[in-house]
């Protein structure tokens, strides 16, 4: 089976810094791939190159290939806007739009493709919020400001906003690191459910989290991909010494 996302000899430079070095990973469809490693190892930088977020910062230079269903997203003819529609992203800190209501936040991305019928929008809002298990908590106050939600709810709202545009891949950059344990648990359960429909790549500094939610795990150190493979295997019988040191807590 062809991988959904194939990262092929990817390099990212920030000015003089070589942040991601010659990385190649295959991500199968409808799986969760976790990227772990000590902070500053380039895992977030790697993640952001998968939907061309680096285009925002002219100082970042990306070389190599990222194939989505076989097509290189860095191809000159490819429009980054359409790539980001297929590859959504959830960030470390919940970042709902504070000037918008809960309802408007969910349809914010969906509405970009032109006028939307009210009934369609209502449906999208309900299914998206149901999928992130937020519907019952907010269905009576959809028109209220999104900032009155708790941190965990805000993050689930951001996930709802991301799946409302029906992406194929969802990138998550430490989505639970700013949340309390209970909210974290809810997010982790959510990730497992979402994997039935989406391909998920998640960056986390929390090894237990990676072990709990992912099918595959990649271990990064200083911009290098040290090892990647099935999560179970990587955590029980790692091939490399560095990986073993890291997962047994000897460094990082």
């Amino acid at each position: 089976m062809n991988p959904k996302v194939k990262i092929d000899k990817l390099n990212v430079h920030f000015g003089q810094t070589h942040a991601v070095k010659d990385v190649s990973i295959d991500v199968p469809e409808n799986t969760v791939t976790a990227i772990i490693g000590p902070s500053g190892c380039g895992k977030s930088t790697m993640l952001r190159s998968l939907n061309r977020m680096h285009d925002l910062f002219p100082s970042a230079r990306v070389t190599g290939k990222v194939l989505l269903d076989g097509g290189d997203i860095y191809d000159r003819k490819v429009d980054p806007v359409s790539i980001r529609r297929r590859v959504g992203m959830v960030f470390q800190k919940p970042n709902p739009f504070p000037a918008m209501s809960i309802y408007d936040n969910v349809v914010a991305g969906y509405k970009l493709n032109g006028r939307v019928k009210k009934s369609d929008a209502d449906e999208i809002v309900e299914t998206s919020l149901r999928r992130v298990a937020l519907w019952d908590e907010v269905k009576d106050r959809l028109k209220n400001n999104s900032m009155e939600l708790s941190g965990g709810q805000q993050q689930r709202l951001c996930i709802a906003r991301t799946i409302a545009v029906q992406p194929e891949v969802i990138l998550m950059d430490e989505p639970a690191s700013a949340l309390d344990p209970i909210s974290t648990l809810k997010i982790e359960e959510l990730i497992e459910e979402l994997a039935e429909k989406y391909t998920i790549i998640i960056v986390t500094h929390n090894m237990q989290q990676a072990a709990r939610v992912s099918d595959y795990t990649a271990f990064f150190y200083m911009g290098d991909l040290i090892e990647w493979g099935e999560t179970k295997k990587l955590f029980t019988t790692p091939e490399k010494k560095q990986t073993e040191d890291y997962i047994t807590g000897r460094f990082g």
Binding site: D79, V81, S82, L112, N113
Partner: peptide, 10 residues
């Protein structure tokens, strides 16, 4: 779909 993206880019 592609058309609206072109329009939006324009």
């Amino acid at each position: 779909m592609m058309n609206t993206v072109t329009l939006r880019n324009l």
